[in-house]
């Protein structure tokens, strides 16, 4: 899942980014309102974490502008003000959630997961496909009662497929949602990671869950269902 973080405090942006990336998210950073607005409008992301007090263009204006363009990307507002009126204004402008600085990092992660789930077809923290269980809170992946060990990138790929379960996901989608915008990408890399995943998830099991859709991409699906 790719997250756009718009925060002008560089130190705060750095640690939030680190924390999110360690959880398997791909984070794009913007440090002022202009950059933030440009990236919000032009980068495919799954969530925007938006500070309100920003140089050049404030967060609420960015929010208003992207909502006006009909973009439905979930937005989590971050702010140093906790006046009720600010929360109301923020939510009414089109924010999906609101977090006041300073925040407990665990809460930020929980809200991020909840917002990502909201757009996906899955509504629970644990996603189940046949006997495969993906716990999005602690990143534990089990199949048939057996715990799998996945790398961060593998997990991010599996989680992305799981959120979009039963629908075809193109290679471009995968690139746009689990890689950084400026990563040097070889299109084979996706196939390589899909292979790694298949080895861990499907190899020892009779029923396969990851399927290739020729010419389109991949799908995570329980074929018996």
């Amino acid at each position: 899942m790719r997250i756009l973080l718009v925060e002008d405090e560089k130190d705060l942006a750095a640690i939030v980014r680190q924390g999110l990336e360690e959880e398997g998210y791909t984070v794009e950073s913007a440090y002022d309102g202009e950059e933030g607005l440009y990236m919000a409008e032009n980068l495919p992301v799954d969530l925007i974490i938006l500070d309100i007090m920003l140089p050049l263009i404030d967060g609420l204006s960015i929010l208003k502008s992207i909502r006006k363009k009909g973009m439905t990307t979930p937005v989590l507002l971050l702010t140093a003000r906790d006046a009720i009126l600010d929360k109301i204004t923020g939510l009414d402008t089109g924010a999906d959630d609101y977090l006041t600085k300073p925040f407990v990092f665990g809460e930020l992660l929980a809200r991020v997961r909840s917002l990502i789930r909201r757009k996906a077809t899955v509504k629970e923290a644990v996603i189940r496909i046949a006997d495969l269980e993906i716990n999005t809170a602690d990143h534990e992946v089990r199949r048939g009662g057996k715990t799998m060990t996945l790398s961060a990138r593998e997990y991010a790929l599996l989680e992305y497929l799981a959120y979009k379960k039963d629908s075809v996901v193109s290679r471009t989608d995968i690139v746009e949602h689990i890689y950084h915008e400026d990563d040097e990408m070889d299109s084979n890399v996706i196939d390589v990671y899909i292979n790694y995943l298949r080895n861990k998830i499907d190899k020892e099991f009779k029923s396969k869950l990851i399927h290739t859709v020729r010419g389109s991409g991949y799908i995570l699906k329980d074929q018996k269902a």
Binding site: V16, Q18, E22, P102, F103, V104, F105, G106
Partner: peptide, 16 residues
């Protein structure tokens, strides 16, 4: 709030 948020976030993320 901002410096507190920085401290809190470093604490939470680094100790994780």
């Amino acid at each position: 709030r901002t410096p507190t948020a920085i401290i809190k976030s470093y604490h939470d993320v680094i100790l994780n």
